[in-house]
Amino acid sequence: METIKIQGTDDTPGVILDPIDKLFQISGRSLPEDVTAFYDPLLEWLDDYAEENKDKIEFEFKLTYFNTASSKLLLDVLLKLEEMHEDGTEILIKWFFPDDDEDMEEAGEEYADIVEVPFEQISYTL
């Protein structure tokens, strides 16, 4: 499996999907011009990964902003992780939010309510 490493920009998040070092992270800002073109390859990667691997995954979300179109695709990523969890892979979602950003904290709580996966909220100082 190849590693996906995407540098974050003004409108697209940084992504690390590293099957060797077991690093899984989406960070930064997400308001891509075409949300599905950005997220579909990540969802496909997770599908492929799930077929070959059952080791524990700690998936980090460290976003500072996402638009509503991205929120739908982020849910798709979380639902994919929920599916893997149901198939016996140990999953931990780590949702990072800036300590003064209540909306980002609440967004994490809402996702945690929707998907049935161990979910940890972590605040940090920007």
């Binding site: 599905t36 929120s71 739908k72 849910l75 809402e110 929707i114």
Partner: peptide, 18 residues
């Protein structure tokens, strides 16, 4: 919001209805 994000589909123009 929760209902729409769960049940809504992305439109042709990639809007989430949110």
């Amino acid at each position: 919001y929760k209902k729409q994000i769960k049940e809504g589909r992305l439109s042709e123009k990639k809007g989430a209805g949110l």
